[in-house]
Amino acid sequence: MHTMALAAAGPAGFLNFLQAIKIGITAGAIYALVALGYTLVYGIIELINFAHGDVFMWGTQVTFVLITALGITSTIGGWQLVGVLALLVVAASVFCGVLNVTIERLAYRPLRRAPRLAPLIAAIAVSFILENIAELWRGPGQIAFPNLFPSTALININQTFVVEYRDVFIVVLALVIMFALSRFILGTKLGRAMRATAQDPEAAQLMGVNINTTIALTFLLGGALAGAGAVVFTVSTAGYVWFFTGFQFGLYAFTAAVLGGIGNVNGAVLGGFMIGIVEGLSIAYLPQGSILSTAVVFGVLVLVLVFRPTGFLGAQVPDKA
C-alpha cells in the first residue's frame, strides 16, 4: 500500500516516508527501553507489571524536577548538555529502579503464591496510585518543558527528511544500554541467576540462587531502564510532563514486548522498534492518523496475541494460566 503511494508521490513522497520511519525509529528506541522492563519482569515472575508505565512516568517527573532545580530553561549545547544528560539518566534510573523494587516488595511479593490474577490486580492498583499521586501533585494538565537539544540538523533534505542531534542521542543511548544489559544478563553471575530463576525458580533456589534478591534485582534493572527511557523521552520528544503519560506509553511498550515475544530480551528491542515504526507510519499515512494510530497499535497487539501469542522471537508456551 505504501509503495503504491510512494510511486505516485515521487521523491517528496519518499522523503516523507523516510521521515515517518525516522520518527518511528526514535520513538521505537524509547519503547524498547520500557519494553525491556516488562519483558524482564514477565520473564522472571510471569507478571504483567501494569505499573511499569507509571514508573516510567515518575521518571519523567524526576527529570522535570531536576531540570527545574538546575535552572535550565532553554537549549544548551556542548559538554554542558552531555553532563546534564548523564546526571539526569543516572538520577532517573536510580529513582525508578528503587521505586520499582519498593513496589515489588510491598505489593507483589506478598502475592507471589496467590492465584494468578491477584498480583495483576495489585499491579493495576499500584498503577492507579502512582498516577493519581502525580496528578494531585502536578495537576491534571500537561506541563510544558524546554527542549534541551540545539535544533541544528545533521541531515536536512528539503525540510522534509530531517535528522537532528537528539535523534542520534536517543538511538545511540538506547543501543548502548541494550548492549550493556545483554552483556549483564549473558556474561555475569547475577545475570545467570536471573536466567536460572526465569527458567525454574525452585530449581534455581536449590542451586543456591537467592530468589528474592534476584527478583528484586530484575525489578531494579527494569525500573532503571524505564528511568533512562523517561529522560530520553522528556528531554527530546515529549515537550511536556503529564501524569497520564505512563498509561498509553506503557501499553505501547507492553505491546512491543509482546510483539517481540514476551520474556525475550532481544524480542523486546525488536518489538519496540517495530511498534515505533507502525505508529510513525500510521500517523503519517492514515486519515486522522493521530487518532487512529492508537487503535492501530492496539489492533496489532490483539492480532499478535490472537494469532502468534509467542511473538516473533518468543518460544515460551503462552497460555500458562
Binding site: 492496539f298 496475541l305 490472537v306
Partner: peptide, 18 residues
C-alpha cells in the same frame, strides 16, 4: 478464547481502548 489469564486481560483492554 485461546488465551488465558493475563493475555486475555490485555487483549480485552485493547478492545476497551479501540
Amino acid at each position: 478464547l485461546r488465551l488465558r489469564g493475563d493475555y486475555l486481560a490485555i487483549v480485552t483492554l485493547g478492545f476497551g481502548e479501540i
